[in-house]
Nucleic acid binder design. Structure first.
Lengths: 194, 194
DNA sequence: GAAATTTTGTACTACGCGTTCCAGAAGGAG
DNA sequence: CTCCTTCTGGAACGCGTAGTACAAAATTTC
């Protein structure tokens, strides 16, 4: 049959993701994408149709990545509150280890808002996945007594999700570790059982 | 003397601000800026030198605007905690009243990160101004007994600031009012005296 | 009213962008 | 080995972009 690809599609997506992550959609040129992926123009267009489609694939790649690491992280938690604490401290460590990149989804929301229906749908799907994961651990925490029962688990999840976004923005801005940790600490205390 | 300007510089900045706010720096063309300000190219370049300089002027305009409305808001608060509550509810009302635009500074952080030194300095200055304002009301609240004394006022300020960023991102994403209110409610409780 | 000086509108320039085209290379099926 | 299909590299294209040049318009001072 035909000639096979000379590159790994997942690796290419990873490279494109990093480029979009650093500079945003508009400021990333197709040349940037070539160097970031190591591919030629033809290969990119042959595989991903357009810059926009590549971006959308990139978002999906990012979402999958995030969901996996989130699941692994929550797996080993001692209780519900510990899971939430791990989530927040992991965000901080991730930011400090990878140069304060912020969150690709948050960056995308900031860049596009709700103007692009398809991208907006991907953002929405990510939020829902994130929220349902946190809602689940919040409920677990309420059952095991580590998380406050004064609030609805879904509201607590919204709060934690908002805090993660806040931390990502702070980090991309260049905030110090101590500031990030202070925020995470107060947030954890806010969802803990009193 | 020379021929006078036919337009008001502040009004032009307001128009440019709205354009950048909606679409970000890169995606806003000089044509967009002409229609948004009602000016011709010549007038824009004659007055603001370049797209980038206009953007920086726009950021300063936004910061001033924000500082003024913030001051007015905090003025009428009953106590420290009430000031923080007002701050958060005002963010929500502002977002819902103006079509979930998010925060121009947050959007700018997401788009530029720390890559541009001058813009980064403006963002940093805004954060400092915001933080010192909240730190002040937090201290007031600790003195009048409405805000917890278990935390450093500056840490509480970082937390509130982070929550505001989180709310702005949520809103730009299209989150429902109830979700925004739940987050604000939990955040206020977190800084309240127990 | 005339001179001086600035603003303004329009046409233009040079360039970078996303995308396409095409010729040749490469590998599997027969 | 040959044919067929696909991939790859590079050149090319058309268009939108930020920014400029210039002449006409406008207004204040003398």
């Amino acid at each position: 049959m035909p000639r096979p690809r000379e590159f790994d599609e997942a690796e290419a997506l990873e490279g494109a993701m990093n480029a979009f992550w650093a500079r945003g959609f508009e400021a990333t040129s197709t040349d940037d994408l070539c160097t970031a992926t190591g591919l030629g123009r033809s290969s990119i267009y042959n595989t991903f149709s357009s810059k926009r489609e590549l971006f959308r694939r990139t978002l999906d790649h990012y979402r999958l990545r995030g969901a996996e690491s989130r699941a692994a992280l929550l797996e080993g938690a001692a209780d519900g509150l510990d899971a939430i604490r791990r989530l927040l401290t992991d965000v901080i460590e991730d930011e400090l280890a990878h140069g304060r990149r912020g969150c690709l989804i948050v960056n995308t929301v900031a860049e596009f808002g709700t103007t692009d229906a398809e991208i907006s749908a991907q953002v929405e799907a990510d939020s829902q996945a994130y929220l349902s994961a946190i809602t689940h651990v919040a409920r677990t925490g309420q059952a095991d007594g580590s998380v406050t029962r004064d609030r609805d688990a879904h509201d607590l999840a919204q709060f934690v999700h908002s805090t993660v976004s806040g931390l990502r923005v702070m980090s991309r801005r260049g905030a110090e570790r101590s500031a990030l940790e202070a925020v995470a600490d107060i947030a954890v205390a806010a969802v803990a059982r009193r």
